[in-house]
């Protein structure tokens, strides 16, 4: 923004005030978020418990969720206790996500760097990409059975795509002058990769990884709904069969919390790996 001579002092003052407000709101943001959550919790309590406006058979009361939480933690539900179910789901998500990142990012780099690799991979990619990852579940079951391998395969498939596309875009949209600058300062092809292309693409690589992680959770829960012996998706489907809204709500909350925790870890990793973006 440029404050030119034509700008009157009123709009200048307004701009300054807006800037100050923006800074203040950045400090206030966590509090606003906490207030929203608290407000929703009170609304929930009022609607289901205090007034009974919503029937507990349709939407669980806080007390129902609490007792479901106690049951899952102490006695277990759908074949295991809380920790076992969390361990099962998190492990599969992490495995699928890691395999997807370990294949999607390098392939994206390769496609971004080499026109030949792009020409080779892109057609296959365009052909397979419109198939929704969940449509692979039946084939995965036929190939790998109901065990972990099938789920990891489907998660990989869902999480691989955003990792690859964003990495590829990150390399492709890199300022060409920077690559030229590296060349004239004597960088080898390998150094151009490690010193320019990877760091330059890193912000978009992390965007891709965040989307990958979300896709991993979505796909895992869907896969566990279809067929699993343990896991949060299994808890959800059993609770639906038992018509147990408290447990459904608790399992959904667990998925949300675990997803948020993993995304948070990724955010920390990004802060560490992309220090120049920090303000």
């Amino acid at each position: 923004m440029h404050i030119g001579a034509t700008t009157d002092s009123r709009s200048y003052r307004r701009a300054v005030a807006a800037g100050r407000a923006r800074m203040a709101s950045a400090g206030r943001r966590p509090w606003i978020g906490a207030a929203t959550v608290l407000g929703l919790a009170i609304l929930w309590y009022v609607l289901t418990t205090a007034t009974g406006a919503v029937s507990p058979a349709r939407f669980p009361r806080p007390a129902d969720v609490w007792s479901a939480a106690l049951q899952l933690t102490l006695r277990g539900y759908a074949g295991g206790t809380l920790w076992l179910q969390i361990w099962y789901s998190s492990r599969l998500v992490l495995l699928g996500f890691l395999v997807a990142a370990a294949t999607g990012v390098p392939l994206g780099l390769l496609m971004g760097m080499s026109r030949r690799a792009e020409a080779l991979i892109n057609p296959a990619f365009l052909l397979i990409r419109p198939i929704p990852p969940l449509a692979w579940i039946p084939l995965a079951i036929v190939w790998f059975g109901l065990g972990d391998a099938a789920k990891i395969f489907v998660i990989w498939f869902a999480a691989f795509v955003p990792a690859l596309i964003n990495t590829y875009t990150g390399v492709r949209t890199l300022d060409r002058t920077l690559i030229a600058a590296a060349r004239v300062h004597g960088a080898s092809e390998r150094q151009i990769l490690t010193e320019v292309m990877i760091p330059g693409a890193l912000p978009l690589i992390f965007t891709g990884l965040r989307l990958s992680l979300q896709a991993s959770w979505t796909t895992l829960v869907a896969a566990e709904l279809v067929g699993a012996f343990f896991g949060l998706g299994r808890v959800l489907i059993i609770a639906a069969q038992d018509i147990y809204p408290g447990m459904i709500a608790f399992a959904m909350a667990l998925v949300a919390i675990l997803g948020a925790l993993m995304t948070g870890c990724l955010g920390l990793l990004e802060r560490w790996a992309v220090p120049w973006r920090r303000t």
Partner: peptide
Amino acid sequence: AEPGPDRAVVFQQFALFPWK
């Protein structure tokens, strides 16, 4: 035939590496 460190260039748009 190709760029080389025997001919260093100072670019009109600086071309500094933002991550360094």
